[in-house]
Write a protein that binds this DNA or RNA. Structure first.
Length: 179
DNA sequence: GCAGTGATCATA
DNA sequence: ATGATCACTGCC
C-alpha cells in the first residue's frame, strides 16, 4: 500500500507517479483493483484551476490537511470526483484520478467503484476501503503523455499548463503477469 | 451541440 | 434567500 510518504510530494510528481499504480476498492466482502491511467495535478492555492485558489471553505478543507487523504466532491448535480491530497500539510494541492482500469472518465470511475462523499476526508488506506498499491507494473517513460487539464478553461494561463497525465492502457496479458 | 441536476459559495 | 457556477456525461 502507498502511504503518506508517497503522497507528501508535489501534486505534479504524484500525478505522474500514480500512472500504472492500482486503485483498490473494498466493498462488503469484495475487492476490486483498477490500474490508474489518467490523472491531473492541482498544484496549490496559486493555481487558478484548483478549488483551493478560492479559499479555505468547508468543501476544500481536506486539501489543507496532510497528504494521503481522499478529497471527494459532487459536481453538476450528478457526479462524484475522486482526488487524493498531496504536498505538505498546510499547502492545499491534490491529484484528480480521472481514469483507471476499464473506466474512462472521472465520474464513471467513481460510479463503478461506489465512491461518494462518505470517503471525503478518509485516509487512502484499507481502513477506508479505498487505497493505492504498487503491483509492479512499470510504465515506460515515453508512454506517458501530458496535456492541458480538462474543463478548466476559466483559469486563464493555468488552463494551458500540461498538468494532465495519460498513459496507454496495458493489455490484459501484461496485467495477468502481475500479482 | 446541449440539457440534466443539486451542492456550494458569494452576495444581500 | 437568491442566483451563478460547475475538475461531467449521455443523448441529440
Amino acid at each position: 500500500m502507498l502511504g503518506p510518504d508517497f503522497f507528501a510530494r508535489s501534486a505534479l510528481t504524484v500525478a505522474r507517479e500514480l500512472m500504472g499504480k492500482f486503485l483498490v476498492r473494498r466493498i462488503g466482502g469484495e475487492t476490486r483493483a483498477a490500474i490508474i491511467h489518467e490523472t491531473e495535478a492541482y498544484v496549490g492555492p496559486h493555481d487558478l484551476a484548483c478549488h483551493a485558489s478560492r479559499g479555505r471553505t468547508a468543501r476544500t478543507e481536506v486539501m489543507f490537511g496532510p497528504a494521503g487523504y481522499w478529497y471527494v466532491y459532487f459536481i453538476y448535480g450528478m457526479h462524484w470526483m475522486l482526488n487524493v491530497v498531496t504536498s505538505r500539510h498546510g499547502h492545499p494541492a491534490a491529484v484528480l484520478v480521472r481514469g483507471a482500469g476499464p473506466w474512462i472518465g472521472p465520474a464513471r470511475l467513481t460510479k463503478a467503484l461506489a465512491i461518494d462523499r462518505t470517503l471525503n476526508g478518509q485516509p487512502a488506506s484499507p481502513e477506508s476501503g479505498l487505497w493505492v498499491e504498487d503491483r509492479g507494473y512499470r510504465v515506460r517513460r515515453g508512454a506517458i503523455r501530458r496535456t492541458p487539464r480538462i474543463g478548466v478553461d476559466y483559469s486563464g494561463e493555468w488552463a494551458a499548463r500540461p498538468y494532465r497525465f495519460v498513459m496507454g492502457r496495458p493489455h490484459d496479458d501484461e496485467l495477468a503477469a502481475l500479482h
